[in-house]
Design a protein around this nucleic acid. Structure first.
Lengths: 135, 135, 135, 135
DNA sequence: GTGGTCTAGACCACT
DNA sequence: GTGGTCTAGACCACC
């Protein structure tokens, strides 16, 4: 089971934190394709948030193609694979990264430092992935 | 003068878009240290938003150390330089980058593609800077 | 509940008076760590000011680390403790105290009188704290 | 002559900075009773601010009894001595000190640290005073 | 119902 | 004319 850690005083909405952590779970391999996720009800009670909040997160993940929601089988990580790298997605990545990169430049981080940071984050997420490959 | 382009129907608050674009302006060298920014009122009327929205953006930029409100020269890019790379800043960068990297991994972008994207964005911002150097 | 007393004709902005009184409430122990504060709207209507004025006070207190906006519990005194004594804070204290001390010297208060005044104010704030300890 | 140092990007109005620095000049003994101050015009041009700003500072200092303004002799530190410690003054000191002390308590400065800080500031101002005594 | 955001319009302090 | 403050009223996102 994926361990969800929420910061209730963050400015990031809870449903967004949920979405992010589930996507990170998939990216890291802790959640495998086809693997079941807890029901809206049980997850909501587990992490102590409103049903609507979990529901919103699941709805978003479904819309973007990360999960499937079946009446009987429940919620599962989409067994047919992840959504592709669309132009729309690239545009979103670009617009999200731009202000981050700009701020880094302003404060004097050079390009290599920034790339190192991204690489470090990538490693931090993907290393569990290797365990999956070997497991 | 910096050209501000707002997306009024974006989910990103207008004041945040303003903050980002001004930071990008500084990062790109289009806005130089000590350079004056338009007054709250004139910028607000120029871009067609309320004065308070611009004021909020300026207040945030001031708090983070990007600009100063000089009693005689008005609002200027902080002539004493940009805020440093603090631990707090690195933590913010990390938490902002993490979900972006995770989503990229999920969708099958490999590490190099991601690094290339960041590098491309970096170039896109910094190239105006070079024009300044050479100009 | 903390009793807020505002002087509407003071030259001190209302939001600053609010910030000060809430900080005094925490210092005196009348507001404990983790204790909830009234919502922006209810406090605004209670003390008869605009919602934005209260909001500005809360925003400042949040930025300085005195309070948190918890997504479920609402606004609370930061349960993780108060902000530390940073160099920046000491510098602010110094620059605020300097003109006060200078004026006292001019008017002939000697050092001991001044120290007594500070001690008296300190007691005045901290004594409620003792009541809490003993109560 | 008193050296005036203004911070144009401070949130403290320039006229207030002027008032404070002149009072500190008197407190430290660098400005003696009866000593002449520069005219509004010359001071304004010296420090590069508007006439009105200097005028406002002098007006306030006169109202509080720190200086005298004569048509012929010009502006002088009041030769008859400084204003006394009135109840009104004590009330002002109290209300100014209260939020400073409260914030110090919140952040964990103990009473002695605070008293030490005040004493240190007092010394910093008054030590020039001794030179006056000996001079 | 909560805080967050935006608008519109007003007054004041400062320079 | 500048920024700072305050008000009033509105809509939205979140829970």
């Amino acid at each position: 089971m994926l361990i969800i850690e929420l910061e209730m005083q963050s400015d990031t909405p809870i449903y967004t934190q949920l979405v992010n952590q589930i996507i990170e779970g998939i990216a890291s391999g802790r959640l495998k394709l086809g693997e079941p996720l807890p029901s809206v009800r049980s997850l909501a009670s587990d992490i102590g948030v409103n049903l609507h909040t979990v529901n919103k997160a699941y709805t978003l993940l479904k819309q973007e193609g990360y999960i499937q929601v079946h009446r009987q089988r429940g919620v599962v990580v989409d067994p047919d694979g992840m959504p592709p790298v669309t132009e729309e997605f690239m545009a979103k990545q670009h617009s999200q990264l731009k202000p981050i990169v700009a701020e880094a430049i302003c404060r004097g981080m050079d390009k290599q430092q920034l790339l190192d940071l991204v690489e470090q984050i990538h490693k931090g997420i993907a290393e569990t992935d290797n365990e999956k490959e070997n497991g």
